[in-house]
Write a protein that binds this DNA or RNA. Structure first.
Length: 417
RNA sequence: GGGGGGAUGCCCGAGUGGCUAAAGGGGACGGGCUGUAAACCCGUUGGCUAUGCCUACGUUGGUUCGAAUCCAACUCCCCCCA
C-alpha cells in the first residue's frame, strides 16, 4: 500500500486530501528526508471558521502528525483586499475592526487541532498584515511587478470567470493573487517554508507563489490543493438551514455540531471518515461497507470522532447521548437547546405560538402557525392542532421541563425558573 | 465629461396605473415514504392583538380616487464612448 516514500504523501493520497500538486514526487522525496514546513492561509471574513475550512485544518494536522512543521497564516492583510477566487461578485469590504475581531475568533480553533510551540515540528501562527501593511507601493511594483504579466494574470480562473461573466473585477481584487504570492515567498525566506496548501480554488494563487519564489528567491517551492468538497447531492459543505456549521463553540452548540455529522448523506460517509477522523483505514473500510439501517452506526462514529477533535471527548459523548435518547427512545437529552421561562409566566398560561417562537423553533408567530398547520409542532411529543391553545404548568413533565418539537429533527426544552 | 441600462420578497427573476403580499424558479421549512440518508410526491414560504390592519418593490417628494408601475430630484451599480 505504501506507494510513496513519505508517510505524509501516503496518507494524503489514501485519505483523499490530494487534488493537485505542482510536483508530488519531488515533494514526497523531500518529506521523506526530514521535516518540511508548509502553510495554509485563512482569510478573516467571519468570526469563526466553519466546516468548509475543516479539510484544510485536518490537512495541517496530518502534516504535523507525520512529522512536519505547519504554519497557520492569518490573512490579516489579504482580507483587507478580498480574494476574488471562486466568487461571482466582489464582497463588501470589511472594516479593520471587523477583521481584527474575526481573527481573534478564528485563532482559537487551531489550538485544538495543532500543537503550537518552538520545537522542530511545532506549529506557528503568523499574520500577513505584519509584512503587507507596510509595503511601499513603488518598491513592490518594481520588485514583484516585472514577474507578473497581465496576459498571464488574465488566464487565471479567478479573473477569467469574472471577465467571462461580465462581472466587475476591481483593481483591488486583481492584486490579491500578487499579494498571496508575495506571502509565500516571504514565508519561504523567513521560515524556510517550502509548501503552500489550500483548497482547489487556491490553485492559481498558489502557483503564482511557486513561480515568484523561483524567480525572485531562487527557491524551489511546492503547491498542493485539496478537492473542493460538496456533499454527494451537490450542496456546499458546511452550510445548512440554520446557517453555517461553525467550528467555534460559542457559534454553534456541541449538540448541533454532532448532529451535522450524524446527518451525513450515505454516499459521503466513507469520504468524510477519511478526511475528518483519524480512524485507521481498515476500520474505515469496514464502516464504509455497512448498508441500509446499519450505516447509521458509521455515521455515529463519524459524528463522535469529528466532534471529539473539535469540541472534546466529553462534548462528543454528551451530544451522542442526547441524540440517542431523543431520536431512538423518543425521550429527551440534556443537551437539547434549552430556553428558560419564568415559572409564574407558565403558570399563568402561554399561547403555543409564543412558546414556539420563544424556544427558537419558529421565527414568528406566523411561522409557528404554519408549523402547526403543517402538523409539525409537538409538545411533549403530542401533536399540537389548535394554534390558539395555551400551555400551563400541567405541561411540565416529570423531568421538570416542557419538550417542544418542530418536525422530526428540531427540538427544544422549556425550563421553568 | 458624454451616451445607454439597471436597483423587486432569503436568492434569481417576471410584472410597467387598480384583479399584486406581487408570476415562475431556486433555496428553506413542514408533511408523506424511509434509516435522524438520498431520490421522489404534497403543502407552506412578510408581520400582527387577524373575515381586518400594518409593512414591503433603491431613497425622498409629486401626479392620481388609486402607483412596484407615471413624473422629479437624489443615492448606488453596470455598460459604451472620451
Amino acid at each position: 500500500m505504501a506507494q510513496y516514500k513519505s508517510d505524509f504523501v501516503n496518507q494524503l493520497t489514501q485519505r483523499g486530501f490530494m487534488h493537485q500538486c505542482t510536483d508530488l514526487d519531488a515533494l514526497d522525496e523531500k518529506c521523506a528526508q526530514g521535516p518540511v514546513t508548509a502553510y495554509i492561509g485563512f482569510d478573516c471574513t467571519a468570526p469563526s471558521l466553519h466546516v468548509g475550512s475543516l479539510v484544510s485544518i485536518m490537512l495541517l494536522r496530518l502534516f504535523q502528525q507525520t512529522g512536519h512543521k505547519p504554519i497557520v497564516l492569518m490573512g490579516g492583510g489579504t482580507t483587507r483586499i478580498g480574494d476574488p477566487s471562486g466568487k461571482d461578485e466582489s464582497r463588501k469590504l470589511l472594516t479593520d475592526a471587523d477583521i481584527t475581531n474575526n481573527m481573534n475568533g478564528i485563532k482559537q480553533v487551531f489550538q485544538k487541532y495543532l500543537t503550537f510551540g518552538e520545537g522542530k515540528t511545532d506549529a506557528v501562527m503568523v499574520n500577513n498584515a505584519d509584512w503587507l501593511d507596510n509595503l511601499k507601493y513603488i518598491e513592490l511594483l518594481r520588485d514583484i511587478g516585472p514577474h507578473f504579466t497581465v496576459n498571464r494574470m488574465l488566464t487565471f480562473d479567478s479573473v477569467k470567470l469574472r471577465l467571462e461573466r461580465e462581472q466587475p473585477l476591481t483593481f483591488l481584487e486583481f492584486n490579491y493573487m500578487i499579494l498571496q504570492a508575495f506571502d509565500f515567498v516571504e514565508l519561504a525566506k523567513s521560515h524556510n517554508c517550502q509548501l503552500q496548501m489550500g483548497g482547489s480554488d487556491q490553485w492559481g494563487n498558489i502557483v503564482n507563489g511557486v513561480e515568484l519564489g523561483r524567480r525572485v528567491a531562487e527557491k524551489q517551492l511546492y503547491g498542493l490543493t485539496t478537492p473542493l468538497l460538496t456533499t454527494a447531492s451537490g450542496a456546499k459543505m458546511g452550510k445548512t438551514a440554520d446557517g453555517a456549521i461553525w467550528l467555534n463553540d460559542d457559534a454553534l452548540s456541541h449538540y448541533d455540531y454532532w448532529q451535522y455529522w450524524r446527518n451525513t448523506e450515505d454516499a459521503d460517509v466513507g469520504k468524510f471518515l477519511k478526511l475528518f477522523t483519524e480512524l485507521p483505514m481498515d476500520e474505515i473500510a469496514r464502516l464504509e461497507k455497512l448498508e441500509g439501517q446499519e450505516i447509521n452506526d458509521a455515521k455515529k462514529v463519524l459524528a463522535d470522532e469529528a466532534t471529539k477533535l473539535c469540541r472534546g471527548t466529553d462534548a462528543a459523548a454528551e451530544a451522542r447521548k442526547t441524540a440517542e435518547t431523543t431520536f431512538e427512545q423518543g425521550g429527551m437529552g440534556e443537551s437539547l437547546p434549552t430556553v428558560e421561562i419564568a415559572r409564574a409566566e407558565i403558570e399563568a398560561g402561554i399561547g403555543v405560538l409564543t412558546l414556539f417562537t420563544q424556544a427558537g423553533l419558529a421565527s414568528s408567530n406566523g411561522d409557528a402557525r404554519r408549523l402547526i398547520k403543517g402538523g409539525g409542532a409537538k409538545i411533549n411529543d403530542q401533536q399540537v392542532s389548535d394554534e390558539r391553545a395555551t400551555i400551563a404548568a400541567d405541561a411540565i413533565n416529570q423531568d421538570g421541563v416542557i419538550k417542544l418539537s418542530a418536525g422530526k429533527k428540531r427540538h427544544a426544552l422549556i425550563k421553568p425558573v
